[in-house]
Computed example of a mutant assay.
Amino acid sequence: MSLANPLWGAPRIHGELKMIGIDIAQSTVAKYMVKRRRPPSQSWKTFICNHTDGIAACDFLVVPTIGFKLLFAFIVMAHGRRKLLHVGVTAHPTAEWTAQQLREAFPWDQTPESLIRDNDAIYGAVFKNRLKSMSIRDGPTAPRSPWQNGYVERLIGSIRRECLDHIIIRDESHLRRVLRAYAEYYNSARTHLGLEKNSPVPRKPQAHGRLVSRPHLGGLHYEYARIG
């Protein structure tokens, strides 16, 4: 109990033991508790799990075009249901442009409590002021710690493996259309292990009716459902 519950003290553990029929003195519990060098604190992973419904995350995805031009896609997702909230595309990202993407991603009545981001220089004063004006807590990750923004990093990996690795991007407008089509597939059709094999926008299991398939991204992926 001491290992699994680092926030518990001897009285709490003693009470739990009493509830399951183990009658020992509280002083004995204190004697055998795990000794820690510093007061217990939440790990980053624990913090994410405890606050997931109020957290969003963002990051940039760099995409080359057929003419070897680099485009930048700004990705915003919600942790709670892994929903892809917003995709912005530009050839010349600036702090002002990135701050405007926040306004488009989060209407006033749908802002998250916190936004996790990396320490890229583009997230400067303009971006931070926009977060403050929208009452969103700024959550920069530690330097060289991409795992602290693991949800959006995994999403970017899925976008590459399931979409961009199979499509040659012509220009900015083409990339925007492709990413918006992938966002529709990702949110409404693609199943996730972390969501008990459901999609960000929940799908209801169907056992009866005629089986039909709906193509996404020009047939790169399919969604299956029953009708009738």
Rank of each mutant, 00 (worst) to 15 (best):
L3G: 04
A10V: 09
A10Y: 02
P11F: 03
H14L: 03
G15C: 11
G15N: 13
I22S: 10
D23S: 04
T28Y: 04
V34Y: 03
R37A: 13
T46N: 10
G54Y: 08
L61M: 15
V62W: 05
I66R: 11
F68W: 12
L70G: 01
A73T: 09
F74D: 03
I75F: 04
M77D: 02
L85M: 11
H92Q: 10
P93C: 12
T94A: 04
T98I: 05
Q100M: 12
F106D: 06
E113A: 11
I116Q: 01
Y123N: 12
G124S: 13
V126L: 12
F127S: 04
K132H: 11
D138C: 10
T141M: 02
Y151I: 10
V152F: 02
E153A: 05
G157W: 05
S158I: 12
R161H: 07
D165M: 01
I167K: 06
D171M: 12
H174R: 05
R177Y: 03
V178T: 10
R180K: 11
A181E: 13
T191G: 01
E196Y: 07
N198P: 08
P200C: 03
V201A: 10
R203I: 15
K204E: 15
A207W: 14
G209C: 14
V212Q: 12
G218N: 06
G219H: 00
E223M: 00
Y224G: 00
